[in-house]
């Protein structure tokens, strides 16, 4: 069902590049096709991604693989408790002549070409660092050395370990809202994949694995243009617009949509806020990219459903008493929303 207009050869070419990109990452990260598809969608929607998951499921490997396959300038920092915002911006040291020097830090080093900024263990960094990151993500700009640096190509990838809670700092709601997607990552369940991951020596040497990925598959400088073309090229019919609005309404006011979740008595007070217009706009952006990847130039409900949970789940804020169980409640709520709202 190839409904993309024939004249729009650029979109078709780029789709081939996107598929090559997905294949390259999938060669290094086994059994995570869904996550890779979501990250690809985020790349073409120009959105920042937060990966969340257990220790050792391959979050860092996946993001390194994505960075290598994409190409472009790449910087990486590790979140620590004592990290300060200036550590990201400036690099201070004593030079050989004994004088203190201040040079551009990780964020500024590649200057305005920085395409991927990879923040490992983001929840270990302090709120001051989150605040800097918030500006970097929201405005893609930074004030340093008495001038403004702009990062038009920047995409932030972050990962977060959800097991440890000690010496960690929860991201503020505003910073979480800036992430296009928050993707939960789990180890693959498929026995064959598990066997390969455990026994194939190729997967033991992460550096070698990453080095084997073809690089520069997507040109960061042109991604912005193609992302814009996708957003303009994929149509959303009246029916799908009504559908998205109905989903939004049901997510914010589940009791009015007739949604009941087991174990929750007060459905009216369950959702306290969130699901911002920015979030719904992000949902539609991501869904359009998915439609394009599926070789359609119009949205269908499946596009919305495929990206709904990663895009919307972290933007929903529950009543404090239920926040502890959000990892069960929010996915159940998202499922219930799709089971309740009629499409078409």
């Amino acid at each position: 069902m190839n409904d993309i207009r024939r004249g729009d050869a650029m979109l078709t070419d780029w789709r081939a590049a996107a598929q090559a990109f997905e294949a390259a990452v999938a060669g290094a990260v086994l059994g995570q096709e869904r996550i890779i598809r979501l990250v690809t969608i985020a790349v073409f929607a120009r959105g920042h991604v937060l990966l969340e998951g257990d220790v050792g499921v391959g979050k860092t490997t996946l993001l390194r693989a994505v960075a290598r396959a994409m190409g472009g300038a790449y910087e990486r920092v590790e979140g620590t408790v004592d990290m300060m915002p200036t550590d990201l911006v400036y690099h201070t040291y004593l030079a050989e002549d004994g004088r203190p020097r201040v040079e551009p830090g990780p964020v500024l080093r590649s200057s305005e070409d920085l395409a991927i900024f990879f923040f490992n263990e983001i929840n270990r960094a302090r709120p001051q660092v989150h605040a800097l990151l918030l500006r970097l993500m929201a405005e893609r700009s930074l004030q340093a050395f008495n001038r403004e640096y702009r990062f038009p190509l920047l995409q932030v990838f972050a990962d977060r370990n959800r097991v440890e809670r000690e010496e960690t700092f929860e991201l503020p709601a505003a910073a979480r809202d800036r992430f296009l997607m928050e993707i939960g990552m789990e180890a693959p369940r498929d026995p064959a994949t598990r066997r390969a991951l455990a026994f194939d020596p190729r997967f033991h040497d992460t550096d070698g694995l990453i080095a084997g990925i073809p690089t520069g598959l997507l040109d960061p400088a042109r991604l912005g243009g193609i992302a814009s073309a996708i957003q303009h090229g994929v149509r959303a019919s009246e029916a799908i617009q009504a559908y998205v609005v109905a989903l939004w309404e049901a997510l914010v006011r589940p009791h009015e949509a007739g949604i009941r979740l087991p174990g929750i008595d007060d459905m009216a007070g369950l959702v306290q806020g969130g699901a911002s217009p920015r979030g719904v706009a992000a949902l539609v952006r991501a869904a359009r990219v998915r439609a394009w990847l599926e070789e359609r130039d119009w949205l269908v409900p499946e596009d919305i459903r495929a990206v709904f949970e990663p895009v919307m789940a972290h933007r929903v804020f529950l009543e404090p008493i239920h926040e502890l169980h959000r990892s069960e409640i929010v996915p159940a709520l998202c499922r219930a929303v799709f089971e309740t709202v009629p499409a078409p």
């Binding site: 269908v300 409900p301 499946e302 459903r305 799709f338 089971e339 309740t340 709202v341 009629p342 499409a343 078409p344």
Partner: peptide, 15 residues
């Protein structure tokens, strides 16, 4: 569509 939804017990999409 509504018949299929009722039979499935939830909203049924093409996929």
């Amino acid at each position: 569509h509504r018949g299929l939804d009722a039979k499935a017990g939830h909203r049924l999409l093409a996929d």
